[in-house]
């Protein structure tokens, strides 16, 4: 390379850096998509979206993340951000859908047999399974806003972030989370 080309060499380096940033945003979002798409999809179905719609919205959520990264939006946690955007989509869906929101599950929820149990006896194992089934059933029966609060808290969102998504005060979100935990506890003790 000629010495006289140094000026454009520097500019070229900046250009390359810009495009490598683009490449890295692509890679980051693609990697997140591979690892989190299933979780986001299930989260959306759990908030009442139809499976096909949930699959569409899941992709939109990752595109939104890509745009946010490009705009250099500060993200405390990419995962939390993904769930927050998905939750907003769910809330928008509720507002559009003026009908009761049902969470459709494959069947009556039963514990995943592939997960090993720590219970010492088959009887204790059966009891434990029944308890988990009752809690899962309770989750399905929670008011949709309460269920969303619980699911977002599971993803590490703070109360104020959850409140913002639902358009309620932080204390209301806290109250909903606490009452949900209480209600689910009651279900497991039946």
């Amino acid at each position: 390379m000629a010495a006289g080309d140094d000026s454009y060499l520097n500019l070229g380096a900046m250009f390359e850096a810009a495009w490598s940033e683009k490449g890295s945003a692509h890679e980051r979002v693609t990697a997140l998509y591979e690892s989190h798409r299933d979780g986001i999809y299930r989260f959306l179905v759990a908030q009442g979206l139809e499976p096909a719609a949930a699959q569409e919205v899941t992709q939109d959520v990752f595109i939104d993340l890509f745009v946010a990264i490009q705009k250099e939006t500060p993200l405390r946690s990419e995962r939390g951000w993904l769930y927050a955007v998905a939750a907003r989509a769910a809330v928008d869906f509720w507002r559009r859908e003026k009908r009761p929101i049902w969470v459709e599950l494959d069947s009556s929820p039963t514990p995943d047999e592939s997960l090993s149990s720590r219970e010492p006896t088959p009887e204790a194992n059966a009891l434990e399974n029944e308890r988990l089934r009752q809690i899962a059933d309770g989750l399905r029966r929670l008011p949709k806003e309460h269920r969303l609060c619980v699911h977002l808290r599971m993803q590490g969102l703070r109360y104020r972030e959850i409140a913002k998504i639902l358009g309620v005060s932080t204390s209301t979100a806290a109250e909903w989370i606490a009452s949900s935990v209480e209600r689910l506890r009651g279900g497991s003790n039946d």
Partner: peptide, 12 residues
């Protein structure tokens, strides 16, 4: 535990 072992796997 209920979320991971029962609720999430039961979503289609």
């Amino acid at each position: 535990k209920a979320q991971i072992q029962v609720f999430a796997p039961s979503i289609p």
